[in-house]
Design a protein around this nucleic acid. Structure first.
Lengths: 106, 106
DNA sequence: TTCACTTACTTACAAAAAGTAACTACATAA
DNA sequence: TTATGTAGTTACTTTTTGTAAGTAAGTGAA
C-alpha cells in the first residue's frame, strides 16, 4: 500500500472522478445552472447531480438558490474550486500540444 | 452533447481514468518496474496492467524489456508523458494548499 | 529431466459505479 | 384543477473495478 503522498492521492480521488474535469472546465467560465451544464456536457442528470453534490461537500462548488419563478439554482466555484484553474489550464495546454484531431475522432 | 473542446475531453478521458494520476506521479520520479509500482501504489496487478497498456497505446508510457535473468521490464514516460509534469505538479500544489490532513483520514 | 523460482502478467468471478429513461417535487399560472 | 418549468430522483441494465488464484517464459538446482 502507498504512502507516496496522502494529500495528492486525495486530490486525485476528487479530480479524477469521471466528469469532474469537464464540470470544473464549465464552471471556470462562470456560474452555471443545472440544465445548462446538462446540455453542455455529455453527462446525464443522475451523475451531474451526484458530482455537484460531491463537489459541494468537498467545498469546491457553491450552490446558490434564487427564489424566482421558476426557481433558479446556480452552481459556482468556491475559492478552493477556483484554485484548480491552473490544473485545468495545464490540461488544456497539454491537450492542444499533444492530442491530435484523429485521436479525438477514434 | 458537448462541443466544449474535443481535445480537452480526450485529455480528461485519459488523465482522469482511475489510477492514471498516481501512475504518472510514480513515473515522473523515474523509470519503474511493474512489481515496484504494484507495491508502491494501492492498485492491483490487473488494473496496473490495463492502465500501463492503455498509456503505452496513447504514447504516454514506454515499455523497455531487458533480457537479463530474471527478465526486467521498465516503464518510463515518453516525451508526451513527461509533458504532463506541470499538470501533476499543479495538482500536488493544490493538494498541499487545500487538502487537509483530516480530509485524508476520513 | 523434472521441479522450483522469479517476474510479469491474465483469468474468472463478485461488487461497485455508470448509463438510460421514466418519474417526482415544488412553485406558479391559466 | 390542469399545465408548465426547473431541478432533480428512482429503477433497472451495462460497464468497470476489486480480489484472488492461475499462467507463461526463462533460468538453475537436484
Amino acid at each position: 500500500m502507498s504512502e507516496l503522498c496522502p494529500r495528492f492521492e486525495k486530490a486525485m480521488q476528487i479530480i479524477s472522478k469521471r466528469w469532474v474535469g469537464l464540470i470544473l472546465f464549465e464552471l471556470l467560465d462562470g456560474p452555471k445552472r443545472f440544465s445548462e451544464m446538462e446540455s453542455n456536457l455529455p453527462v446525464s442528470g443522475r451523475l451531474l447531480s451526484d458530482r455537484l453534490k460531491m463537489l459541494e461537500q468537498e467545498g469546491i462548488v457553491n450552490r446558490n438558490i434564487y427564489s424566482e419563478f421558476p426557481v433558479r439554482i446556480e452552481y459556482s466555484l468556491s475559492k478552493k474550486g477556483e484554485s484548480l484553474r491552473p490544473v485545468i489550464e495545464d490540461i488544456q495546454k497539454w491537450a492542444d500540444d499533444w492530442v491530435t484531431p484523429e485521436e479525438v475522432e477514434g
